[in-house]
Design a binder for these strands. Sequence first.
DNA 1: ATAGAATACGAATAATTATTCGTATTTAAA
DNA 2: TTTAAATACGAATAATTATTCGTATTCTAT
Lengths: 209, 209
Amino acid sequence: MSFPANPQITTRKQPQQARSNDLVNAILQAAIQVLQTEGAQRFTTTRVAERAGVSVGSLYQYFPNKAAILFRLQTDEWQQTSDMLSAILQNTQHQPMVRLRQMIVAFIQSECEEASMRQALDDAAPLYRDAPEVADARAQTKALYQQFMLELMPDVEAKQREIASELMMNTIKTVGKSFSDESHGAAKILAFSNAMADMLCAYVEKLNT
Amino acid sequence: MSFPANPQITTRKQPQQARSNDLVNAILQAAIQVLQTEGAQRFTTTRVAERAGVSVGSLYQYFPNKAAILFRLQTDEWQQTSDMLSAILQNTQHQPMVRLRQMIVAFIQSECEEASMRQALDDAAPLYRDAPEVADARAQTKALYQQFMLELMPDVEAKQREIASELMMNTIKTVGKSFSDESHGAAKILAFSNAMADMLCAYVEKLNT
DNA sequence: ATAGAATACGAATAATTATTCGTATTTAAA
DNA sequence: TTTAAATACGAATAATTATTCGTATTCTAT
């Protein structure tokens, strides 16, 4: 294991008045900019406060520590992605296999668009990775996938379906990340997405036989 | 992008006498221990030197900076993995598909065994990631895969085969990493390896049709 | 208008870190 | 044995950092 678990990552005073609400938003926007322009290594509370045009002291009134800011950014991003995936996977107007393809294309596309932000957040992950809130988010995504897999391969034995679910979820997420580490043209992105969809579809068809 | 590219990561004086050779080895061993027991965040040159029972000054005579030590560890690990994969993939006594399965099982197994070391090295990756030597190593692995893919699907159009090669290589590497982030029993490891092999084989068969 | 709560400030603190360099010791060749 | 190169040492340096806390300002409710 790495280093002592983080003490707190969420709690501290909530903004009540309008000005403090603005301040928190300014900090989050500044945090994104610092992360993208300076990288995870140079992401410091002082720099974020400076960029936001506020005092470090003010920052610490709403975030208990540096990791909390990063965790908040990551959480917001996870929420966006999760919403997008839900919308596609639960749209019963299309056949399951079609939805799978749509989802893969949309996910890879999205990863490529936010590549620099994502990489910086990944670099900073050791700072918040061990927080229990992270496990919660993962569990939620896992549940979403498993429900969809039930629809995708209803007749496959439960045990095998769960492994397949883990494998496919893992593949989409990590291969998408890795692919987006290098920048690609739109055509390459589409070709790669389709290849991944082909691969997963071939696997599902095989399991359904 | 992240932060200024690393100045040097390899060059500095080579050990000539026996004692300096021992010293370098002691440093590398100590570096592994520090990385595993303290994590990437607490990996410092002073700690490594202390653990090795040598002076920091001595350390800096053979490594130009902290990143160089980490890069050396990563390089050594890459070399081991690369040797293992070569041995399996180039063993023409087995059919290509069989070799693919063997390779996947062996790779996942190996990733799970060295999980803590690998994760710590990944956490430290931002420190050496941008070095040109890293690109060289990646290119070498890519070539190995592409040669094998030629054998695995000789009749597939070159363009498509290259994408498939990238996808499969990426899948094995990143999904293996991600899977090994959590610890699993031997049965689970085998089941997951087989699932991955099933998936990749299904894809190859589909392409070969 | 005014008191108390909320908010904002930012210099100061305490800790950690990577790396250097002047000096001492050891080795190998003459 | 002498000498120069190689090696080893580790205190000192210079820089960076996360976080606090005493004080000043602004808001809100009465």
